[in-house]
Amino acid sequence: MTALSLRDVRKNFGPTEIIRGVTLDIAPGERHCIIGPNGAGKTTCFNLISGRFPISSGEILLNDQRIDTLPPHKINRLGLSRSFQITSIFHRLSVFENLRCALLWSRGYRYSFWSPLWRQKALNEAADRLLEDLNLATRRDILAGLLSYAEQRALEIGMTIAGGASVILLDEPTAGMSNTETDYAMALIRRVTQGKTLLMVEHDMKVVFDLADTITVLVYGQVIASGPPASVRANRAVQEAYLGALEE
């Protein structure tokens, strides 16, 4: 059984094929990193998996169930949650409200217009606990749009994991962060994705080789290598196409 699997997934934007037959199997609990040069189609892959764009052909399965025809909210309800490379939060809501919103559906509130939020003790406590986890407790009532960049990235991760999804997709969570911020963010990611399946796009090779159980290298919309870090590092094609240029 796989947590997530892609079978010969293709995606065209107009006449150009951006994803050219990606096949990928991710086991439950695996930490899987996708690397590849800019424009390789990593974000597009995430957009296809999470239902943001329809695929052109192929199959995507979540826990052995087809999801490639479902809209994003239904995929999310099945237990797959993603973050965005470009921070995507609710700017005019407070940090606390952002997290609480992200908790609502999974806690069964649906479209309720009869339950007063202030009386939902368990929900509010969960949001506050999450704030603590993210180290954002002191920023609780500030508008999310006013947070610093690194704080917004932390919030983005928090919103992604809030709903308790079993498969988490993170798109360059540490991009644009300083070294200390990156270390902090990675510790956070390890902590909050414990026991979950993690699929992550990352540019920082140190982070990737530290974290990943499996690494997939995507170049021009195709997987050129996939396997444990050691084997990917040793792979000639990868070194030529990509790693050699990056690793000094």
Binding site: S50, R52, P71, P72, H73, N76, R77, S81, R82, F84, S88, I89, F90, H91, R92, L93, E97, R100, C101, A102, L104, W105, S106, Y109, R110, Y111, S112, F113, W114, S115, P116, L117, W118, M159, T160, A162, G163
Partner: peptide
């Protein structure tokens, strides 16, 4: 002050994001 009211604010701020936390 209800989930619907709050999610209305959320879809106002960021229509797309709301989809990825389970809401249509």
């Amino acid at each position: 002050l209800t989930p619907l009211g709050r999610m209305a604010n959320a879809t106002r701020d960021n229509y797309e994001r709301a989809q990825f936390i389970g809401y249509d």
